[in-house]
Design a binder for these strands. Structure first.
Lengths: 328, 328
DNA sequence: CATGTTCATGGAAACGATTCCATCATGGTT
DNA sequence: AACCATGATGGAATCGTTTCCATGAACATG
């Protein structure tokens, strides 16, 4: 029952060589062909698997890569995580997952846990502002941001969707349909989008129509319902994420606003149910999984270097949730 | 730039005590009050954080808990993972996430990675049959299954939703509405449900109406479409998960089957979009997050003991996707 | 007073890998 | 033949903890 794991020492003894040699053979160092083969054979026979524990301690870093997302329940982050996992798996690296709830304090805690674990590579959707990351980055942790930047941290490589272009396309599409009073229903960390929203809308911008929800579903619903009740004159909404879109649909239904007759709706993030909705939702698709994969790739390939980030394309997928401005 | 982490040795020196004492103080061992306070003060001053690396090696186990789910993209497993994370966070434990794609081989690989990392506690939605877990369990890894059992492994504690009761309720509901040809659209690992399905349906059971998809969305769609085309006489479907439900709605729409007029649909797992669908979907809600939380709790509390599992209630939520049998 | 018991304490030995460094054999060059 | 370069090899140090054990002080009990 209580059999010890086989260690490198066992292999060394069984193969009649020193532990140093075994280590070298197994990690690709130099060794004579016959020694190499003998060691490999013995290792296979004993079903030897090097313990990450010993290695990590010696190398003062745990191999794994940390992943911090706001909410693993959100389809977008689920897909993003899936991309990270796919890349990590192909590299044989474990992934330590933490959720921040878009809360700076929780983010800091999760970072602390990761550091304690000796994780030295992190993919994160940053929640707090850049300062939180200061000591972390200084301590030599390779970080890649995904999906969004931390305020005031242009020095960290990031893999982003080109949502600025997405916003432009969406706004142009809506104004093209005749809409003038267009709302933006945003979530945490979408300042950059909103600035483009303002820019593109130009003279049409109406600050009252720009509202923000915190991360939760409840908050999203409250924001949407509040917006619709307070400003029944709006005719189109751009929802900044799938949970916000969901809230918008729900709130609209609750208030008997018909989509797209009374209200045109565009949602960021193409989720499977967007097609099942009635009407099917027009969306700006973001390559969530690619974002995750690329970010993981960057963080793995980074050999101490600071890699450049990436900007992935978004796509407006027109379905049935937008129509011409209602004439009332 | 290249400053070393502060170690326990630094703290010991600064406090004028031995490292053993520091370790004891920090991990709740016995020490004189004044020593304790001095050590704690110094540790706080130096911002000392014990390295998990050293501890893990010495204790021959990594603190973290492993989590294995088929697909983190699936809302159900997302919520399950969220539950595990919530529990782990309250215990300050990191979570290593792996996905199996419901594939036995991938599951084995992920287990190997976890073992290599020294993980000794795992929450898993088992994909393969029980044998895969044999060497793992034998090697002393505390395992708790979540959401389903591995075939032929009654010796592993499991946290399950009472989906057998769910199936019974759903079938009774459908037969009560007059349906006679009821299909089950299943996914991997749902044998137990199907056996209850057969049982409850009794003489009405029709083996051709029981079809299985593999884990992917494509496979689910193919199964649903195939079922509907091949047996246009069926009047009700029980979909074994949200992806299967999604596929059913999509396939029905494609084939111009109106829900619930031509086809009644009940889906396992209450996802947010079930309400947005038109008609809103009648579902059997499963407490995914609770399952994850409870499973993590079990795996954490288990002090070598083998805890008993849990069976969590399901609930039929009637919305609009079921109607009386069509009279053709 | 002698002896035993209970503490707090620190030195040192693990844990299992990697890696520095010294050693030794080999083979080629002068 | 003497010498050096090269490459394979194993011993030992190292990473940062925890934990075993010996020591010594303090105190109670005979």
């Amino acid at each position: 029952m209580n059999m010890r794991r086989t260690t490198i020492k066992d292999v060394a003894e069984a193969a009649g060589v020193g532990v140093a040699t075994v280590s070298r053979v197994l990690s690709g160092g130099s060794a004579s062909p016959e020694t190499r083969e003998r060691v490999l054979t013995v290792a296979a026979q004993l079903d030897y698997r090097p313990s990450a524990l010993g290695r990590n301690l010696r190398q003062r870093r745990s191999g794994g890569i940390g992943l911090l997302v706001p909410d693993i329940t959100d389809s977008f982050y689920g897909r993003l995580a899936d991309g990270v996992l796919a890349c990590a798996r192909s590299a044989g690296e474990p992934v330590i997952l933490g959720t921040t709830g878009d809360d700076a304090e929780r983010e800091a805690e999760e970072i602390a846990v990761l550091l304690e674990q000796g994780v030295d590579r992190v993919v994160a959707v940053p929640a707090g502002n850049g300062e939180i990351w200061e000591p972390t980055l200084r301590s030599g942790l390779t970080t890649v941001f995904a999906h969004r930047l931390a305020a005031g941290r242009q020095d960290v490589p990031a893999v982003l969707a080109d949502d600025r272009a997405g916003v432009r396309t969406a706004v142009d599409y809506l104004t093209g349909l005749g809409h003038r009073r267009i709302a933006y229903l945003g979530g945490p960390g979408q300042d950059s989008r909103v600035s483009v929203f303002r820019q593109t809308l130009g003279a049409l911008v109406d600050e009252e129509l720009i509202v923000f929800a915190r991360g939760s579903r409840d908050s999203a619903y409250a924001a949407a319902a509040g917006l619709f009740q307070h400003r029944p004159d709006l005719t189109a909404v751009l929802a900044g994420g799938n949970q916000l879109g969901e809230a918008a649909v729900l709130a609209a239904r609750e208030l008997d606003l018909r989509v797209p007759k009374d209200l045109s709706l565009i949602m960021f993030d193409d989720v499977p149910w967007a097609e099942l909705c009635s009407p099917p939702l027009t969306v700006i698709a973001e390559p969530a999984q690619d974002i995750g994969y690329r970010a993981a790739e960057l963080v793995l390939r980074a050999g101490g270097r600071r890699p450049r980030g990436a900007l992935l394309p978004t796509e407006l997928i027109v379905r049935g949730s937008c129509g011409p401005r209602r004439t009332q």
